[in-house]
Simulated scan of single mutants.
Amino acid sequence: MSEGTMQRAAQRDPSHQRARRLSRAVVGAAAVPVMLIAAGCSSDSGSDDASKNASASASASAAPSPTVQAAAYDKLPEACDVLAKDTLGDLVPKAGKSGKEGSSDDTSTRASCSWSSLDNNGVKGSQFRWLNVSLLRFESDITRGEGDKLAAEFYAKQVQDAQATKDAKNVKSEPVAGTGDEATLVRYDLKKKEGSFKQQTVVARVENVVVTLDYNGAGLAGEKTPSADTLTKLAEKAAKEAVAAVTKANGSGTDGDSAGTNPSKSPSKDATEDSAKDSSKKPSAKASAKS
């Protein structure tokens, strides 16, 4: 029997065919554990990554949210009511019953009121007086800082602006005692076509509120120029009264508290970003004499 014939006979032999099938089965079975091991390794790696991500997420959520101490004062008094009737009678005797309220889109954060007085003495001339009180309240802001610190920055800027008034002569500055947490008087002379004006600007800060009081006077049409010292005393008195009105509006101080200090501060609170508001709006910073 030839070799080819023997090979074909072997292939047709049932026992030989069973042996070949068995061999293929063994090889296939051996490959299964390898696939399972590879799949197992891949599954374990994914679990580790998921665990790490979950741990990082938990750590991030556990971190405390940024906070800032809430401002002590949360309201302002009516600007046209901060000065007593008698005080107005001394500063602006011909102003009438009420002042002119300044425009504001939020009177809880900024407000102002002005009064003007012209005492006309006919051919002897006239005495002119002008008074303006501006109130600005700063709220604590998560990005900008605490309200009282923001107010302190604005207070310093108001003083600098008053000192740098254009064409001002004989500029003098001095601290004002017993008026809020800090206060400064800036006074100077300003020559205008109507006459020589004596300007007094008192800038005061109490907690997170800044009070700016501008007061000037002039003798017109030949009337004598008013005494700067007299105007200074009146301006300082009015500034103390305005500061006292701020503390009273927020539950501190009394009717007789002319110093306007706040011995008992409001309890500290945490203000979150949701409660923070924009306090960047400012009244006119330039304190100058007006006719």
Rank of each mutant, 00 (worst) to 15 (best):
G28D: 15
A29R: 05
A31I: 14
V32E: 09
V32K: 03
V32A: 12
P33T: 06
V34Q: 01
V34L: 12
V34Y: 03
V34H: 04
M35E: 09
L36R: 09
L36E: 09
L36F: 09
L36G: 15
I37A: 10
I37S: 07
A39T: 10
C41L: 14
C41T: 11
S42M: 15
S43E: 13
D44G: 01
D44C: 04
S45H: 12
S45L: 14
S45Q: 12
S45R: 13
S45Y: 08
G46F: 11
G46N: 13
S47H: 11
S47C: 05
S47M: 11
S47T: 11
S47W: 10
D48S: 08
D48N: 09
D49L: 13
D49V: 12
D49K: 04
A50D: 05
A50P: 02
A50I: 00
A50M: 02
S51E: 07
N53K: 03
N53E: 12
A54N: 06
A54W: 02
S55F: 10
A58K: 07
S59Q: 14
A60K: 13
S61M: 07
S61V: 01
S61C: 02
A62L: 01
A63Q: 11
A63S: 06
A63M: 09
A63N: 08
P64C: 00
P64F: 01
S65M: 10
S65T: 08
S65R: 14
P66L: 06
T67L: 10
T67I: 07
V68Q: 03
V68Y: 08
Q69S: 12
Q69R: 14
A71S: 14
D74V: 13
D74R: 15
D74M: 12
K75R: 15
K75G: 11
P77S: 00
E78R: 12
E78V: 09
E78Y: 02
E78M: 06
A79N: 01
C80V: 00
C80Q: 01
C80W: 04
D81V: 10
